[in-house]
Every structure is written in C-alpha cells, then in structure tokens.
Design a protein around this nucleic acid. Sequence first.
DNA 1: TATTCATATCACTAAAACTGATAGTTATTA
DNA 2: TAATAACTATCAGTTTTAGTGATATGAATA
Lengths: 292, 292
Amino acid sequence: MNNVEQLRMFIETIELGSFSASAKKLGKVQSAVSQGIANLEIDLDVQLFDRSTRKPSLTPEGERLKPYAEAILHQVNEFQAVVDSINKEEEALVRITFDNALLMPALTKILAEFDQKFPNTSLEVNTISSLQVASEVRLGRADIGIMLANPSFNKLVDLCFIGHLPFYAVCHAQYPLASMSKINVGDLTPHKQIALKEDRVETNQSTPLLSANIWWANDFLNIKAMVIEGLGWSYLPAHLVEQEIVAGQLCKLDLTFDYKIWSPPIDLVTEKNHSRGPAQEWLFEALKGLFD
Amino acid sequence: MNNVEQLRMFIETIELGSFSASAKKLGKVQSAVSQGIANLEIDLDVQLFDRSTRKPSLTPEGERLKPYAEAILHQVNEFQAVVDSINKEEEALVRITFDNALLMPALTKILAEFDQKFPNTSLEVNTISSLQVASEVRLGRADIGIMLANPSFNKLVDLCFIGHLPFYAVCHAQYPLASMSKINVGDLTPHKQIALKEDRVETNQSTPLLSANIWWANDFLNIKAMVIEGLGWSYLPAHLVEQEIVAGQLCKLDLTFDYKIWSPPIDLVTEKNHSRGPAQEWLFEALKGLFD
DNA sequence: TATTCATATCACTAAAACTGATAGTTATTA
DNA sequence: TAATAACTATCAGTTTTAGTGATATGAATA
C-alpha cells in the first residue's frame, strides 16, 4: 500500500455511499474514483465493494479493512498538522517554570487554552521556588518563568511585571488569633508565625516576618497544612486558602496595620533579548493577563 | 502527504544514514531517493536533511517529523498485514465455546499460540455449561465447541472425540473420608456428595452419584469452594484440584471400586459439514492434541 | 417501459516517478 | 597535498501512473 489518495477514495466512498459523490468531494471526476478503487482492489487483491447494486456496498473484506485505512488517514492528518505547525514556525516545545504558590486556577486555565491553540507544541511545566525561577530561565532550561518579583535579577533576564498576588494572613478557626479583632503587631508577637524558607540572603522575605517565634517551611502547601493543624498563623496566597475560609476551617486575621491586602508583585521572566516563536509569544501574552 | 514511498525513503535514509544505502534497500537507484526526498521537502515546504556534510543529517524539523512518519508506516504495515491475512483467507473472527471445567493450562496455552499464529484474527472465548455447547455451535453462535461427550447430539453437529478429562473424587483434608482407606460404595452413602447440576433429563450425569445425600451446584468452581469448606465430597476435574492436593488442603478418596481414574470423554463440536478457514482449521487441529 | 442516476470502460493527456549518465562535493588515505 | 572513495545533485529521456471526458451499460424508480 503506497497510495494514500486511493485510501481517501475508499473511505469517502464508504461515507458517502457512491463513487460519484466521493469524486466530487475529492475534486475529481467519477471515473477517476472508479478507476482508483479498481486499482486499489487489484493492488491488494481484495474485492472492497460489491457493485451488483446501484450504489457500491462494502464487502466483508472491505468492512474489515476500513478501520485500518482510517487509522492510516488519521496518522497522515497528524503528520500534516505537525508540518503545518512547523511552517507556522511553532515551537516543538515550550518550557514554563513558576513558583508553586502561583499554581492557581487562572494559570491552569491558560495552560488548557494553550493546549487547544497549539496541539502540536509540547508544554513542559515545572514548579520550583521563586528564587530558582530566574536562573532556570537564564541557563536556558526554561523559556518562560513566573516568580515573586525580585529586581536584582534584571541584569540577567528580562522581567515583565504582570500584577500582584494577594496574600491573606490566616490561622485555624480554633487558633487564639481567630477570635481577636483589631490585631496589632504587638498582639502577634507571642504567636507562632510560619514563613516560607526562601534561602536567599541578599533580599528581603516576600512576606513580612512579624512574630517572635517563627517556623519555616519550603512550600506553601506545607505551610497550609501546618496552619490547618493549628501550629500557628501565616501569610498564604489567597487562592490557596479561599475555599477553607469559606468553609470556616481557616480565618483571616483582622490586622489593623494591613490597610490593604498584602500583595507582592509578580514578574514574568524570559531570557534576555531572546526571540520567541508563536506558541511562546501567545503564552507570554496570555500570562500577562493572569491577574486580570 | 500522499506518497508513502517517500516516507519510506525518509525513514530508511535516517536509519541507514545515506541516500544511496536507502536506495539500495528500497530497490531503486540513488537519484530516485535523492529526487524523492527533494520532492517531499518541496511538498511539505520543510527541509528534512542538512546536505552540507558528506552524509545527509536530520534537521530539527526532520527530527520532529520522524516519529509521525514512522507512525504512518506502522499503520501501513498493519493494513498490509490484514490484507495478507485476508488473502490467506484467514477469518476475521473465530468463536470458541467450552465447558468451564475445561479451562485448563493446556487450553490457554493453545489460545496463546493461536494469538501468535493469527494476530489478525480475533478470538471470542465463551465458557458455558457442557449441555449448551452443542446448541451454541448448531445455532451458529460459536465455531468450535468443547464439551463432555454426549452422543445424543451427533445428528445436529459434528463431534470429534479428543480424549478423557480425568476427575478425582476429593474431600477436604479434615473431612471424615480423608482418613479412610479402601472406601466402598456403602461407606460413601452417609456422606454428602456435591454434584454438577446439569439440568438435562434425557442423559446420565457425567459423574456418578454415589451418596444418599446430594447437593447440587452449577459450576465446578462453586463445587470446589464447597468441598474446600468441608461441606462434602465430589468428583472434580483433576486440573482444578491438583494444586490443593499437593498442598495438602484436599485429599483424593481411596475408592475401592474406581480401579481406574474416572475420566469422561471430551468431544470437539463443529457445525455439521461446515468449511473451515485456516485459523479455525489450525485451532481445531491444536485442540485435538489437548490431552496429549 | 421510460427515465434517472450511477458505474465501467476506453482512448487520450498530463503528471509523476524512475533511470542512467555525469558533474561536483566531502572525507579519507597514501 | 594529491589521489581516491563514497556521496549527492542534476538532467534529459523513458516508463509508469493518475486523471479527463466521452460513451456505453446497468440498476432502481415511477
């Protein structure tokens, strides 16, 4: 079997029930399909259609071969889709890396849209601590990064401010602070704060340290678990605790000094002066709207 | 993409590293492959090979397309295999039905060999009670049946005697009969026998009924479970209890009147005067040796 | 029975695939 | 470094295949 066009004739004739209809759909004259199918039958030495009736009807052998022919045509279409993708200069792979605090519904929605728009471009998604995001991009191990803003990197990579990630100060509903109103800094001092271990010496913490007794964890999900256990209070990304607050499991602290919600800025990170293919370009633009 | 031969040139050239080697393997001259690949590149508008070196080397685009081309060729091979199967007049489907007492290792081994020999023929395997096997075949719902011999069917279907299925009289190791030697018919009378419910009135039981108190079950696996529970003794197909006897869980009864192992005859059943395709023919011949 | 709709066949043309020869290029080796 | 071996590209000519348009024929329909 070498002739894909004959397989198209075969399948279209089955679908449409006649050689002439099949010919019209394939942009040929009737005799082309008639001969094409006849040649296919000769090549395979298999009778595919029964012509004793007005409209050709599939033989059992044709029925048996139909799914295999369809499988070939399907693969041919896949092949063509990749060819088209290449000719649109779409990348084979885009790699995105972000702080795991940023794995929020709006982000996964963007990734799902990406999959729809660029079915022939693979996506590699990594979550790591914000600190490492920039270096992953700079070392060429990721194409786009998203991280808690840190201007000290702006000589090494391109940064693009896209919005603020709101953090809530929360504790468990049974924790002493939950029932307090108008909490000021002094009130927090005796309570345990759980903070993100960011192991960077050169810059400030992304969340403020307010209690005297601080425990550290390297992942917001760990911190969340510890807060739910009632071990202390913490600043956590709003999207991570929204549900638990609604369910009454966690409480926001009524802090007098947080006149606005604590919201550190978020940057997109890309390699310096690096050209982007269409898939990367689309993803970059989509991520700009992450906080809209 | 319509030209499968060009894809073969593409893949063979990758495998063999040169157009000339690829040409030799495909039975063409070098220029045919050279032009073939060139035409493919023109059709796709994608540069597949870098010719600046002595031997052509894949471009990144070629690399990206390679697995898709291989997928097409794979499907084409599958298609051809089915065509070959059809031309050898192999059946699309063979249906075999047998008494579940016969589901023994030797049988599953034959089915595994069938799968090797006839990868393009589907196999439908049904287990039902021996009584129904013949009628399934007669009604055209199975191609080959295997059952405990019952000559009353030989006007309706073709029967072929293939051997005896040995049955052991067994009970649980703790059951009173287990410790008895030289058991005669009278010794059995007070003990409960568990027998196969064959719901046929016109013929004898396939296993003899010897106790006064008889329980019935419609499946040997059910009977086996009941015997293991210590509910009574029963005749069971040897292959079903071999393991448990070795493990000491079940015991063979030392029956004085069973001078030989009780072994009812087994018949292959096929539709009367029905022609067989090669797959069915092979399976029929293989099943003849089931008890060798 | 006439009509319609579909297919098969055929001679012809257009397109494509292939061949064999040749010229040019890249490695290897003497 | 020059000769050689092992490739590839190109081209004119040929063969093969695919497609066209006209025509004949056959099956359903009314």
